[in-house]
């Protein structure tokens, strides 16, 4: 019985550590020539940090503090020539992954044909282990996935210094067990 529990625990841990495979979104690549892909793993983020502040960047201290805690930054934007060229099922692998990893969907908004979703991975206290944004419009799809420990203050800064955000992060549902800390994405 003990062995069974150990195996189960190991399986769950391994699943929790499984990175999101951004290649599952590659089918979107074939649908348009107008796309932007940014993939910054920990090594690339460390490289980026070397030059923050060198050109007297504004908010250099905040940027350095943010980048120091991040494990990965991934952005995919696609622009299409006409409506209906992509389907929301194309991003189902990401939604399924976030659900499996117990991320909380804290915003789900639909305005006409525009759909916005914001997910966070809650951690104890006011911190979270990542933020994901899906913005789906008839001719534009944007996915942002940032992995790494952040605070509400960091999210406010990301959004722009607009005071207390309307997005209610404090009441996001926390999972029963803390998520795995070391996640390698993509």
């Amino acid at each position: 019985m003990k062995t069974l529990f150990l195996l189960l625990g190991l399986t769950l841990t391994l699943q929790a550590q499984q990175p999101f495979d951004f290649h599952t979104l590659d089918k979107l690549d074939a649908l348009t020539d107008h796309k932007t892909k940014i993939t910054l793993d920990p090594d690339m983020l460390r490289l980026a940090a070397r030059f923050i502040g060198v050109d007297n960047d504004k908010d250099a201290a905040s940027l350095l503090s943010l980048v120091g805690n991040l494990k990965g930054v991934y952005v995919r934007t696609y622009e299409f020539d006409k409506d209906g060229q992509y389907s929301l099922t194309d991003i189902e692998p990401l939604r399924a992954y976030l659900k499996q990893q117990q991320w909380s969907r804290i915003v789900e908004s639909q305005e006409g044909k525009n759909i916005d979703e914001v997910y966070i991975q809650p951690l104890p206290g006011d911190r979270f282990g990542g933020v994901a944004i899906v913005s789906a419009e008839p001719r534009e799809l944007t996915i942002v996935y940032i992995s790494g420990v952040m605070s509400m203050g960091d999210l406010e800064k990301l959004e722009g210094n607009m005071g207390i955000p309307d997005i209610d992060l404090k009441n996001a549902k926390k999972p029963a067990a803390p998520p795995a800390k070391d996640k390698k994405e993509d």
Binding site: L40, A48, V75, T77, N114, V131, I133, S135, L158, E159
Partner: peptide
């Protein structure tokens, strides 16, 4: 890498603001 990182932050900011507005 720095340029990419800053661009990613700009996109994040844009989308968060857009979501908030909606």
């Amino acid at each position: 890498a720095k340029k990419e990182f800053l661009f990613a932050l700009q996109v994040t900011r844009t989308k968060l603001q857009q979501t908030r507005a909606r």
